[in-house]
Design a protein around this nucleic acid. Structure first.
Lengths: 210, 210
DNA sequence: GACTGTGAAGCCATTCACAGCT
DNA sequence: AGCTGTGAATGGCTTCACAGTC
């Protein structure tokens, strides 16, 4: 693979293209142009071609892209050719919703353990999993070759959970708590902040009202 | 307010600063520097100052910013001085989790109606709300002056819901379904894609494994 | 001495426009 | 004729560096 530095925005879009293409494939569509993809996901055709060009030449000039092939390429690029096992910490409403979230399963993610340190939640069933105490996380992670953890606990507990995940040898964390986590450099963290986009909307509506 | 075009990334960070500042305030901290904020949320001090500078001069040279004042300013800029009423469509796991999501309430968002067209869900209670049929959305929205709707339904239903929201006169939509919605220009849409950040993590881990 | 506010510089991402294939 | 792949141009965001203020 090229050694070029790839913009994170490109990876974001690749993830979106990949799922859009799967929908096309389900509809039986076999060929697609950069313009079709662009229209389907709301970006420019040049952007689509540029994004793909970071990784190779996947299309045919004058024709477009083969849908099934392009799905395979995007899935490969995103590291999704093989399934991933995840652990989830936080068995509250958000954690429970994420454990049962259909799209994760569709994209090859399997949650193999749900943890919480709230005694009232331990033992509770979510989908086919039983909520376990946090102490069990390292053993479960090791057993299932887990490299990625999801944090869905209140802000004040999040850093402690992150420390436990790092201690358990996890390499990446998806954090839903609205604060910045402190982790060593070798651990990748991405935050999903559920309020930010809502506040972008209120900002825009407030501007409009002026 | 200045007529300058403001980067959306700036608004994103403002939302993050605003919540970080509230945590400082709760701890009793009264003054903060751009460096403190930067460290707390993981950006550069220059970035913090530049972001704030789009909207005015809020600090004191040689001193920093007054925490309570800066909270007020950021809240005002984000359009959060007055509370917002929202409607939620989708009473599944994700919708239910969002209705009870603490942070929304803390930031002044109140969900005044939850809707679904699944008969098995209608009548169900989520927090202190009873799930209503979609037909009731326009009346509820009007009654409570709702301008923003949240979509938390499966992809294939999302566009229909968006159409209903537009028909009900909503001006902004927060969409959790992983596809691009078609709406008129006067309606603001932002998407929260729960899989994207996870796939950024797998991309990075896959790179690392090479 | 410390920290803000800001023009200028630097950097990065997107768009343009066209050569290259089919 | 149609569409990809890509170097060049553009545009926009971030960082730098320092004057201004307390």
């Amino acid at each position: 693979m090229k050694a070029l530095k790839i913009p994170e925005a490109t990876i974001t879009r690749l993830s979106i293209y990949s799922r859009f293409l799967k929908r096309l494939d389900k509809k039986g569509i076999t060929t697609v142009s950069s313009g079709d993809i662009a229209e389907g996901v709301g970006v420019s055709p040049a952007q689509v071609r540029k994004d793909l060009a970071y990784f190779g030449e996947f299309g045919t000039r004058g024709v477009g892209y083969n849908v099934k092939d392009l799905i395979r390429y995007t899935v490969k690029i995103l590291g999704l050719s093989d399934p991933w096992n995840l652990v989830m910490v936080g068995a509250g409403n958000l954690g429970s919703a994420l454990v049962t979230y259909r799209e994760f399963k569709d994209r090859g993610f399997t949650i193999v353990g749900v943890f919480d340190n709230d005694l009232t939640k331990i033992g509770k069933r979510i989908a086919d999993l039983e909520v376990m105490p946090l102490e069990d996380l390292p053993a479960v992670a090791q057993e299932h070759n887990v490299r990625i953890g999801i944090i869905a606990v209140p802000s004040k507990a999040a850093q402690d959970i992150a420390d436990i995940m790092v201690g358990a040898g996890l390499e990446a964390i998806l954090n839903f708590a609205p604060l910045s986590l402190n982790v060593p450099n070798h651990v990748e963290v991405r935050n999903v902040d559920l309020s930010v986009k809502l506040e972008i909307l209120t900002f825009n509506l407030a501007l409009r009202d002026k």
